[in-house]
Nucleic acid binder design. Structure first.
Lengths: 138, 138
DNA sequence: ATCAGTGCAAACGATTTGCACCTCG
DNA sequence: CGAGGTGCAAATCGTTTGCACTGAT
């Protein structure tokens, strides 16, 4: 836990735990995943599920986290807002997710939308087959 | 209803109705939206919600529809698989969706994924502010 | 001390499932 | 006629809410 907790919010034990889990996560997590992780780690009884949801809601309001869903799965997931953003390639067979090492839009302009729509963010997911599943199919 | 129904599946009245609605839809629809549309149009009592879900599930298995979610909203939506695919720009204020008139990846290569991941599909959503909401903010 | 945060259990909305009946092919 | 589809109601799953209690500042 060698990191600072952002200011302007009350840091209870529960909130710190959730924050730490998101901080160490390799990819966006659902409320359930966070709950399970806490339940496993915490001997002294875990938190109420509702608490996790409320904490995530509070984090979102404060702009600490980004709320999204994977497009192939309707579960809501949360990720800490860091400097940049990451896109993923998702395997259609084993559902493994591989982060892209760069954003294809870094130096590319977005297409016109017809009206003068002002683009500020974007989300991209690639789908296909990972090395293992591709070979397995042969 | 001047269109053919794909073969290899039993075409009940209910399935035809759902198919027609998806056929005429401008964008992906949720089971609820389809249900509501049928409930409104059909005087003679509408279908059981479960029927809509089962029909959509059957369509997906047959490869007739594509199942997705909007990334800013966890609702599951379905769209008929047609020739191409469409991306949308979503207004962060009024949630209006504007279809892009072309896919930015039409002539652009995907970034490396590290492993040799074989990309077959992709999904993109742009976020920002539509003309009206952009002006309203001033 | 005070007010926001938490636990618990009940409420909710979307989706699924079991079972008896009905219908397309 | 027979396999598969449908309606209904109960069950499930993720998430939200009301209320009394607890804890951070």
């Amino acid at each position: 836990m060698n990191h600072e907790y952002p200011q302007g919010i009350k840091w209870t034990k529960q909130r710190k735990d959730v924050y730490n889990i998101l901080h160490d996560a390799a990819e966006p997590l659902s409320a359930q995943q966070i709950y399970n992780q806490i339940a496993k780690a915490d001997e002294d009884g875990s938190y109420a599920p509702s608490t996790i949801y409320r904490i995530l809601g509070a984090f979102e309001e404060k702009g600490l986290v980004r709320k999204t869903t994977w497009m192939d799965d309707s579960t809501v997931v949360y990720e800490l807002k860091r400097g940049g953003h990451t896109h993923y390639a998702v395997c259609l067979t084993c559902h493994k997710r591989v982060p892209l090492r760069s954003c294809p839009f870094a130096h590319i302009h977005f297409p016109e939308t017809g009206d003068d729509f002002q683009i500020t963010e974007h989300k991209l997911e690639l789908y296909g087959y990972c090395k293992e599943c591709k070979n397995a199919k042969k």
